[in-house]
């Protein structure tokens, strides 16, 4: 679930508010998105993929994590490279190659084509 909105990183572009398929965010008084309906988060990582400044972190868990969880430790997430890792892996962002162009996976059967998705 969405666990972190970094006020330090956020440029208040409203993109996550727009793209969240389940309408989890509201715009806060200072413009920084607020996680208003975390229970509706479907853990799809779309907000993260679309955040231009890597200000969001979605934990893989489909239940909320406690306050002391790693998912709320912005410094840890940055140090370990987890913050913004999905956007990096799919090659979104200036100067990156779209992951789709590099998506040549293994062939699941000896005569089959490489898996590309």
């Amino acid at each position: 679930m969405i666990e972190l909105v970094s006020a330090a990183q956020c440029v208040t572009c409203d993109k996550c508010i727009a793209v969240c398929p389940t309408n989890v965010f509201d715009r806060g008084a200072d413009g920084v998105p607020v996680i208003s309906r975390q229970q509706d988060c479907q853990t799809c990582f779309q907000c993260e993929a679309n955040c231009p400044t890597d200000a969001l972190f979605v934990a893989p868990h489909t239940h909320p994590l406690p306050a002391e969880s790693f998912a709320h430790d912005e410094e840890h997430l940055r140090r370990t490279g987890l913050l913004g890792s999905y956007r990096r892996d799919i090659g979104w962002g200036h100067g990156r190659t779209p992951g789709a162009a590099r998506a040549v996976g293994p062939a699941l059967s000896p005569s089959g084509p490489p898996l590309i998705s």
């Binding site: 990582f45 893989p60 999905y86 992951g99 040549v104 996976g105 490489p114 898996l115």
Partner: peptide, 17 residues
């Protein structure tokens, strides 16, 4: 190696856990 390229989202869970 190739699996990571084909399905980056598959590995999100593992990397974060």
């Amino acid at each position: 190696k190739a699996m990571r390229l084909a399905q980056p989202n598959f590995f999100l869970t593992f990397d974060r856990l």
